[in-house]
Design a protein around this nucleic acid. Structure first.
Lengths: 155, 155
DNA sequence: ATACAAATGTTGTTGAAACAAATGAATATA
DNA sequence: TATATTCATTTGTTTCAACAACATTTGTAT
């Protein structure tokens, strides 16, 4: 199978060659956008936004242990200003629940419900498929190499 | 100068090691987010949103030739649903202007104003600095390598 | 103890994005 | 030529995010 591949200049139809730094930056942004579009599209079938999906995965990662709002915020891919209302949405769907923490009554304990876990099990394979479809275009070493280089960029 | 560097598991504080595909996907998304945060922050000093900034750069890239709305949409880093109102904002600031195309009156011709060009000249060095600050953490070959690999991911 | 500061979430408001429908202009069809 | 179809953009509506102000609980210092 032959896949046509485009550099970013073509992709965003830049009129002239970009400076190297901007070229890489744009490439990362465009690629991230591409990924988000694909995942967001798939999640629409489940009436789930990307941030909502991320919160669910974070809560599952807690393995039963509830999480505070601030914990969720820290772990979000993109930091949200109003995580409260995001959680509200998930509560309305009975996918998560919230109780105020007894030890420190300012805090709040958020956890994923049984229904939430079951729901995730339906969503997961769809997203996994997209993710591995994308990353399978590179082999494991290339994959790992990019991981390292991106880590350096964020350093 | 020693920079502390974090892998994505640490960055998003994942409780367990992620599968390779998700690992790379998340890394790209987190990195893009990091870049957007930094650029968005800098643009705030100029009362400019990232999409607005992109439109201005697209129009400058036209070198005097005006662009249609649809042309702008194609070239945007992230596709927007309502570019009309985005352009309205820039018109309100006298940075761009819009006239309906004589040849095809459905179309509209959008171009950057003199003031817009001058404004971009102020903004550019600030953004360039951020962009090269980030990309300079890798050398030219690494930089180019990632570009290629990202192109393959989007293929 | 009391007062003051910091931590943690929530709520109100405003502006932007997503989505769908509508407008107006050009083109194709009958 | 009249009518339908498509194109390019705009507009209306609903949802969501950013930001700031607020409330409540906890911690600290006098």
């Amino acid at each position: 199978m032959l896949l046509k591949q485009m550099n970013i200049e073509d992709t965003i139809k830049a009129s002239n060659k970009l400076p190297d730094s901007r070229r890489l930056i744009l490439n990362i942004l465009v690629t991230a956008n591409h990924i988000n579009d694909r995942i967001g599209e798939a999640l629409k079938d489940f009436d789930l936004s990307i941030p909502q999906f991320n919160v669910l995965r974070i809560l599952r990662g807690q393995k039963g242990k509830p999480a505070n709002l601030s914990t969720i915020q820290e772990r979000m891919v993109s930091r949200m200003s109003n995580t409260t209302r995001l959680v509200d949405k998930l509560i309305a769907k009975n996918l998560v629940e919230r109780v105020t923490c007894e030890a420190n009554r300012r805090k709040v304990e958020i956890s994923i419900t049984k229904k939430g876990l079951e729901f995730l099990q339906e969503v997961d394979p769809v997203i996994d498929k997209i993710e591995s479809e994308i990353t399978s275009r590179l082999n494991a070493e290339e994959n790992e190499l990019i991981n390292e280089k991106l880590n350096e960029l964020r350093a």
